[in-house]
Nucleic acid binder design. Sequence first.
DNA 1: CCAATTCCGAGACGATCGGTCTCGGATCAG
DNA 2: CTGATCCGAGACCGATCGTCTCGGAATTGG
Lengths: 191, 191
Amino acid sequence: MTGGRRRSESSRRAILDAARGLLLERGYERLTIDAVAAQAGVGKQTIYRWWGSKGAVVADAVLEGGLAPPFVPLPDTGDIETDLRAWLRAWTAHLASGVGTSLILALTAATAEDRAVADVLYERFTGPHEQLLRDRLESARAAGQLGSQVPVPTIAGVLIGSLLYRVLSRQAPPTADDADMVVRLVLAGVA
Amino acid sequence: MTGGRRRSESSRRAILDAARGLLLERGYERLTIDAVAAQAGVGKQTIYRWWGSKGAVVADAVLEGGLAPPFVPLPDTGDIETDLRAWLRAWTAHLASGVGTSLILALTAATAEDRAVADVLYERFTGPHEQLLRDRLESARAAGQLGSQVPVPTIAGVLIGSLLYRVLSRQAPPTADDADMVVRLVLAGVA
DNA sequence: CCAATTCCGAGACGATCGGTCTCGGATCAG
DNA sequence: CTGATCCGAGACCGATCGTCTCGGAATTGG
């Protein structure tokens, strides 16, 4: 028999919206499923029927909330330095805001804690952003703007990692000047 | 009155040893204070008398367990490329091992979750390693092996961040080849 | 329209864990 | 000896995760 009530789309949205709001407001550790259910006006079973764990809910909330790629776009003006600078500056601006910092800390906590969640987030969040960067670097290499000594994945990893380290060290948020210097360093190294 | 029983050094050591072992074995999230107390043969109150939280115990355990700097030394042979390569290779080897990965994931989880713990870990773990790197870069700059365009803190952040990203993405652990390419990229950029 | 099926919100429930408190006993200074 | 402080052990509390149950609502096949 194929009968039966269908999944409520409004409940699904309410759950993800509540999870996203509470995540940014309280952080991953202090986000509780009870609070998500209460704020969404939903029974807990409705959450656990569709998501296996707290981490899975958070991952989906992030990925469906306008935070997924390409919410920081990577333009292609033909000049790799201009484009990388714009991309890295947009990220630093986002990460310097409270929302961006909370987001990355939450994703990092979830990643460090649960391997399955880490894989989902890499596949649907980190990976696509990294791929965006790699594609642009490849096109720059094809245009002769990059030397061939250093592989594109290494360059992408260095750019992303330098950003990540600034956020995770929780000392001083990255600035536009930092972004520019990283771009200069990396491009000088591959020119 | 100054009387009273003195703090038991053997209990302190047993607690930190147990915490370190359980941290590497189970990760930060699944490490419980009950388990630490049981494995150390100690009452829970003895833990909470001297440490304020689980994060504080973990931070101390890491910092006192031979995991603190400079367990990865940074030599000074006079050639910055040789030294950076040795340092980054040692780190990649450590991080590619299960212990190193577990350690970094645990520290990252603790950092992302608790600001106070983040500050302690930066002050006594990350910061000293970063300082080691900065000092060596400064001496290279003084020796004329580095151009003056990119600030030393930026260079250090890029080197550390590229490592961190590889570990946190949980996709493939970094290799010696990766380390060499990062060094080549960074040094070409600042030569 | 009816029956079977599946989802819904609500909330009770058991298990786990962080952190506090209490207890009898041990160790220190004076 | 006395008072203070620490010790191991474990009861206890509150929060939280995840499961389970309940009556009710939606949906489909007959």
